[in-house]
Design a protein around this nucleic acid. Sequence first.
DNA 1: ATGAAAGCGCTAACAA
DNA 2: TTGTTAGCGCTTTCAT
Lengths: 339, 339
Amino acid sequence: MPELERQRATIEDVAERAGVSAMTVSRVINKTGSVATQTADRVYSAITELNYIPHRGARALAVQKTNTLGLILPGFSDVFFLELIGGIEAALIEKGYALLVYSSTQPKKQTVLNMPLGEHNTDGLIIFTDSLDDVSLRRLHSRRFPMVLLHHSPPEGLDIPCVTFENKKGAYRMVEHMIQQCGHRRIAFLAGEPGNEDSYWREVGYKEALATHNIPLDLGLIGIGAFDDQVAEGVVSQWIADGMEIEAIFAGDDVSARGAIRAIQKAGLSVPDDIAVAGFDDGLLSQYLDPPLTTVHAPIEDAGRIAAEQLLRLIHSGQAESLILLPTKLVIRRSCGCY
Amino acid sequence: MPELERQRATIEDVAERAGVSAMTVSRVINKTGSVATQTADRVYSAITELNYIPHRGARALAVQKTNTLGLILPGFSDVFFLELIGGIEAALIEKGYALLVYSSTQPKKQTVLNMPLGEHNTDGLIIFTDSLDDVSLRRLHSRRFPMVLLHHSPPEGLDIPCVTFENKKGAYRMVEHMIQQCGHRRIAFLAGEPGNEDSYWREVGYKEALATHNIPLDLGLIGIGAFDDQVAEGVVSQWIADGMEIEAIFAGDDVSARGAIRAIQKAGLSVPDDIAVAGFDDGLLSQYLDPPLTTVHAPIEDAGRIAAEQLLRLIHSGQAESLILLPTKLVIRRSCGCY
DNA sequence: ATGAAAGCGCTAACAA
DNA sequence: TTGTTAGCGCTTTCAT
């Protein structure tokens, strides 16, 4: 490894070159305190000549403020995140904050010890589902580090604000729609992975809707699609191969709905004529599917925006709503069979 | 604004509590140098009791190394980036690096002065297209800060490594396909915004293919779709309204191809029977379009992976290829009319 | 309008 | 095995 001669200019170098003190340079850069125009000009020249770039980390260390927020994601896999990030940025930019995104594909839960996002480059964090483990959450919280949770309630006893969807209600209404409008009764459910809170509440909504309409719960009709199209396709293919009697499938999310559709079509059956399908989220792709997907619209962009706003409030006033539930609404397209 | 009593434990606090020096704590945390097991235990206890989290910024300042790389994007708008990021992460994770992503939707070109990604939290940067202005690029380069450019050649005289697609060749072959296999001659081109390098070379490929096959170039057939579906839809709608004679449209990217398809269909015409369409990129959505889109497959995930590998090489050995061109290939689906 | 000294939280190099 | 000193690059007092 070659000896990297570090020769990057520091504030001292600039100061020397301009014949002033570091303090003056700092004042010029940050436009704080008054500096003679002449002096300022000399400083500016020195800066360009030396290609000086202020070291934001050192600044942050001194000021304890970064004007940037962080977002932690469990992988960038989904289109979902695009909208989420869009919402967050919309809220931040107007307040003069920047957003740094970190995703950890590797170990599902990231620990605070090897996370490149923290106090040094961030004034607060938005944390999606379970992308950070509870111990880390506790540590951060005990240091009063501002955080907002997205789609995940805080560990026991910690009052970390949380923003999520009205999952139960959305699922309930969708299943009710499938029963009342589309006339289905044998409706299967494709859950996410165990522990996924969104999935949990959607399943509760599903069960309650069945109960309300006097349809006995058949546990054989609940499979784990893991919010993944491959997995969902496998499960549904198996159901079909087993000759299970199914009129419709309510997928816990759009991605698994896509897998379900593919499985049905590969089996030579039709959606929705043979088996109807509905999803949850209303992601970007859903309207392009064939047939277009009936789904529960989740305002993911709003979720991002609101989480960001809450985090900002928390940073500035120390206060935020401890739980915000965002309303969902049904989007009826062709896959559910009543169109 | 409330007085935020900062009471977060520092390495000194931990040291005091454990009855050792800060240095010992540092050794325990980083597993560098030897520490008696007993002492280490006391340190660990102190750490948990105080909810101590090392300040990575301070560490970076001291060590001049972060083990994380940065990616700068011009907005998270496109599905495109999902694959790109996937490729980058794949390459980084196995080397023990993390990725931090920053996107600036606001001012199209970001300046180094207000960029939350830099020497303090990053060992090197991958910069997509023109998301960072030339002046910043020069400054960074003069400080020997490791960078790799994606889809953008460096400013005059700077030898910053660059990774991009074989745009010209891909476009050439697609247009040739449309001429030879699909039998089209009046082929329009939907360019990106002026200055977009990908678009530039794709246009060159388009023109060369026409020339090779003795089709006179009609500048009226070249419109600016801006790699945006709305814009592209507008342009194509106008063409149709004007009664322009068009057999096929080669869109500079998939997004504008989608816009073109919509415009054609809204005009009551058929793709590909009345007007054929082809795109470039082969993004995730392309296969779901109706009709499925014929397009030039660009290995975006590879681009990410290779850019990351180059950056790592640059960081460790100071060397990297100055230009890498990634091969593309045609994906023939139904929108071009020869299926 | 400008500068000096001290400190933000951490670690490298050198003792002991 | 452990501690001391100095310094990473910047900004905050407090002087002048």
